[in-house]
Design a protein around this nucleic acid. Structure first.
Lengths: 206, 206
DNA sequence: ATTACTAAGCAGCGAGTAA
DNA sequence: TTTACTCGCTGCTTAGTAA
């Protein structure tokens, strides 16, 4: 905040200590440590030292800055990492229902390859999933067929290891740890992955 | 980053500890402390707890965020706090020189009241002053008069306790800890301040 | 599974001080 | 004035564990 990212700044350990509300010794130690870690460069004079933040240091700060941005500004995409798992073949049954398939076509703009591509995510990431639900998404309505009701689902366009697709979340049953993906492509084949492989699912919020 | 600013999120002390790379006990203590400090609200279930950041907590985070903004994005104004001091009457001599007075009029848009209003700033703030110099400012050229040369100076429009004015920095002699202010008003009188009083000088960079 | 208490150990802080 | 070392003390961390 004194501008040490842009220039060398004069900063004695005494000055730093009063800015940080700590002792001169601790401030001195901080500067030494930051120097050792290559976060700042120092030019020691007899009375002062010139401090400048290195590119390494600036990078660390920028990362922290971006973290704060993520806290306040809702991101336009959320990235999940997870492992490929097999469903119980249900996916195929559902995606082949005309009621779903036609809505996918009009709302998502592609004809879904039969079956779902399932990605198991970390337990902690479920919070991200919840966040996702709050962002709306593409509504797929419930419909009647074969003497039963097929429930409504929420979709988000997504990229699975870069390949076009979408994530499908049932409107009920909140607490899943599996992302069900559909795509115009046969993802297992196109991506060349099998059960246990790690894939990245980027979900687009708007 | 899990979205606890926007919603309640499920977060066990175990999960938090792995995210923070610390022990479950420490994570648990953190959550307790944040609760006590009213930074988060907690809803304890038998197996999970729902955490949400309070408005107090969000405010603290936003302040930190703004600090980072100050690091990376050069601000449009810099605020100094300092105490009013008396010069040695030199200010009057210089500001009454036609060579300066006319340039002030054209470049700053006001006729300066004779004399300078001097504000002594903290030693640490000199770094901000250096930053200021790097931003350019309004150039006042040197000129000849009374058989001598009057050196060029750099000006920045400023507000002294809210009152219109400007800060004048000599092009040479970098290491001052005094801000010399000029203004269309007699600042001491208009602001009702005397030596030793604290004033705020907001310097506009562009 | 959880949360969170107690107690021991250890790391960071700062007083004193040298250069 | 500076910077920065040593060292004792304090307070944070975590292992162990209860609920």
């Amino acid at each position: 905040m004194l501008g040490a990212i842009h220039n060398k700044v004069e900063l004695s350990s005494q000055e730093l200590s009063s800015l940080l509300q700590t002792s001169q010794q601790t401030a001195s130690r901080y500067l030494l440590e930051l120097d050792t870690q290559q976060m700042v460069t120092r030019e020691l004079g007899v009375k002062k030292q010139l401090i400048q933040i290195t590119s390494t240091g600036a990078e660390v700060l920028r990362k922290e800055y971006l973290s704060y941005e993520q806290v306040f500004n809702l991101p336009s995409k959320v990235v999940f990492k997870g492992t490929v798992v097999s469903g119980m073949g249900e996916g195929k049954y559902y995606t082949e229902q005309k009621g779903y398939a036609e809505q996918f076509k009009t709302q998502l703009g592609f004809v879904a390859y039969p079956g779902t591509f399932n990605v198991e995510i970390e337990y902690v990431e479920r919070n991200k999933l919840r966040l996702l639900r709050d962002c709306g998404g593409i509504q797929i309505s419930e419909f009647e067929a074969e003497n039963r009701t097929f429930g409504g689902v929420i979709c988000f366009k997504a990229a699975i290891n870069g390949k076009e697709g979408a994530v499908v979340l049932p409107k009920r049953s909140h607490y899943a740890t599996t992302l069900e993906c559909i795509s115009p492509f046969h993802l297992r084949e196109t991506l060349g992955v099998r059960d246990g492989d790690v894939v990245e699912v980027a979900v687009f919020l708007r």
